[in-house]
Amino acid sequence: MNIHEYISSGIVESYVLGLSDREEAAEFERMCREHPEVKTARDLFELQLEKQAFVNVVAPPERVRKGFFAELDQAAAQDSSAVSSPVVPMSAPGHQRTTGNWARYLAAASIILLIASTALNFYFFQQYKSYSTRYNDLLAQNQLLTSNSNTIQTRLRSYESTISRLTDTNVTVVKMPGFPKGPSPASLATVYWDKRTKEVYIYVNNMPRAVPNKQYQLWALVGGKPVDAGTFDVNGDTVLLRMKNVLNAETFAVTLEKQGGSPTPDLTQLYVIGNVKT
């Protein structure tokens, strides 16, 4: 019989459960010493059995615990008196015994106190660490919320001012569609021109982003002569952009120019153009 046949013969279970006879048990113990795989199989079955023994268990009545603990304490008391009696001097046995016990109780009490205080320290330190981590997390969260809130307020203010421009009756609205022969005929931008204050705002409805190192430049044309009205970028935030004040204009137009603008427009780069309705 080889070792695997031996292991799977049922001897492991029979030995562990106490069902094998003396001879079989002795042989099994010898096999465990000589063959580690037999011992491994035994350990495994014992663990399975132990695990199973804790499933669906029933608690015994409390009196068993009290009874057993009482026996233990009684035995311990007998033990300690048996140990301490030889050192008791003949003159004052009772007195010595009490001091000895007192010292023992004090020592025991102080050790218990020490353990308890160590445990409490550890517990409070863990609590402290946990609260400190949570506090820092909350702080970071709070900062994030504040900065989000600031961003949102800024955007809200710019939307509010956009709406107030759009609804102001003194403002002239100039639609500038894409120039058909220009680089981007599908573009559209709108100029809001307050003729009383001369303030000019531009709203980019649809224009491509400027290539690097280039900027869009707004021109006001009076009698065919272009006047610079400032430069702007298209960055996806669709809000009103404040431009330079314009005194007079018949037409507004936007060209793509070098960064910072040019003195005169590059007409090959005319994106949008629109007339002021009178």
């Binding site: 023994a53 804790f54 268990v57 029933v58 608690a59 015994p60 068993v64 615990r65 057993f68």
Partner: peptide, 15 residues
């Protein structure tokens, strides 16, 4: 021994 009791009494009682 008290630990032993607290830990194993249910399992042994059930057996």
């Amino acid at each position: 021994f008290k630990y032993l009791y607290n830990h194993y009494s249910n399992a042994l009682y059930s057996i």
